[in-house]
Design a protein around this nucleic acid. Structure first.
Lengths: 124, 124
DNA sequence: TATTTAAGACTACACCTGTAATCTATTTTT
DNA sequence: AAAAATAGATTACAGGTGTAGTCTTAAATA
């Protein structure tokens, strides 16, 4: 699958919020969090197109971008990759590391329980 | 904290297996999985030293390397970073993504339950 | 002792990344 | 209509990364 850099991912993430969208809309969305120059974001959009992560249609002089990949697919692939590299493919050690260093809130625990619950229901 | 590239991490990981160790021991350990040239690994060792991830002592003409950072610390930091970037800092959506795409085994579930259990005991 | 080997230091080099600036053509605005 | 703003295309450029090759020196071997 496609490999994205951090900055590229953040631009794509701004598009995933709501699409299709023009470059200026994406720039607008990113302006809250990032101090990126407009030119920087356009460069990143170009690279995303080149990598096949986005497609676009022309609307006069402007391009209207649409993601070519789904966020869930991309994050799942990255998660698998991450867990493979750092935890030999097992997910519990990651969660356990969080638990040991007090990174887990009661809410996290509740959410995790629900995930487990749903998984078990699904097994039947 | 220190930023390591993928290749650098793999070299450090080979040292974490057992240390202190010489370059040739590390090269030996990596030879099973990777097709890296000896020179490549030495370059990476040098970069790891430069980044402060390793220290070494001289033993005659050889260096004896020791990790300067703990694996658990490094992976925890990377995990936090990862979960922040992809899941706004929440861990459950990652696990949930795995569940939805059938990436979880019964063993994973059992391990997760244990982590939760331990966490809850620890809260009292 | 002359030669080969092996350790680390230094150099190389293309591609990726972050971060724009400049160029060109078209709209807007005055 | 002339000038200014704006869209995307092209160019830039330093630092990181993967992947070694060469240089220097000392140790091992013939």
């Amino acid at each position: 699958m496609i490999e994205l850099s951090k900055a590229e991912f953040e631009v794509l993430d701004a598009l995933w919020i709501n699409y299709p969208a023009t470059a200026s809309q994406i720039i607008e969305r990113l302006s809250d969090d990032k101090q990126w120059h407009e030119k920087t974001i356009k460069t990143l959009l170009g690279r995303l197109v080149k990598k096949g992560a986005l497609s676009f249609e022309k609307d006069g002089r402007q391009y209207i971008y649409t993601p070519f990949i789904a966020r869930a697919d991309y994050t799942l692939k990255e998660s698998k990759n991450f867990i493979e590299r750092f935890f030999s493919g097992r997910i519990a050690p990651l969660v356990s590391g969080f638990a040991k260093s007090e990174q887990l809130s009661q809410q996290d625990i509740n959410e995790l329980k629900k995930v487990i619950d749903d998984w078990e229901k699904n097994q039947k």
